[in-house]
């Protein structure tokens, strides 16, 4: 009985999240905002459970996964269970992170990480929260300016175009490519 209630609750949660995403994909911004908001809590719980040994990495990975979901949102098929889609993305980013760490540790001293607990304080400097805002400043102008004006200051495409002297389609492409480049920078730097 209790288990049934729990699946009902999960299904209701999934249904709600799915509706928000579908509205968002159709252009409803407040719904999309609500979707991402709920998704970040869901991702945090999902990743915290799987990264118990690397708690410092959880929030970075939540952010990386959110960016991945956003950049790849066109691959969601309305006929597919939303949780399967989201968990596949989060797991992919999790495995990618573990591989990156393994490669980095191979180049430095593998023993440090084997000892796990002891290295927690040493690792702090290296694992300091990655600042996406800082990474953003490293993007080339044609990507950075559209993102700053449209995504951070909330200006429209037309206003951004007027401010930067870029065409409207160049502004849209700049946002799109900039966010993809941001994901690529995360992949390379960790």
């Amino acid at each position: 009985m209790q288990r049934m209630q729990e699946t009902d609750r999960l299904n209701a949660g999934e249904e709600k999240l799915r509706n928000l995403l579908l509205l968002g994909l159709a252009g409803d911004e407040p719904a999309y905002h609500a979707f991402l908001q709920e998704l970040s809590a869901h991702l945090r719980a999902f990743l915290r459970k799987r990264l118990a040994r690397l708690p410092d990495e959880v929030e970075d990975l939540v952010q990386e996964s959110l960016l991945a979901v956003h950049n790849q949102r066109h691959t969601y098929d309305a006929g597919q269970p939303l949780t399967a889609w989201i968990h596949a993305i989060a797991k992919y980013k999790l495995i990618d992170l573990l591989r990156r760490r393994a490669r980095r540790d191979l180049l430095t001293d593998p023993l440090d990480d084997e000892l796990g607990l002891a290295s927690a304080s040493d690792a702090e400097a290296a694992d300091a929260r990655r600042d996406l805002g800082k990474l953003l400043t490293q993007l080339p102008e044609r990507q950075r300016l559209p993102i700053v004006h449209m995504k951070l200051e909330g200006l429209s495409v037309a206003e951004t175009s007027r401010l930067t002297g870029m065409s409207e389609s160049a502004v849209k492409v700049g946002v799109h490519r900039g966010l993809k480049a941001l994901a690529a920078m995360i992949r390379k730097d960790a």
Binding site: Y32, L36, Q63, L66, L132, L136, L152, G154
Partner: peptide, 16 residues
């Protein structure tokens, strides 16, 4: 950047 700010940034002007 805090996660909430990232969420706002991603949602702003996301369009269809």
């Amino acid at each position: 950047m805090r996660t909430d700010d990232l969420v706002t940034m991603l949602a702003t002007g996301a369009g269809a």
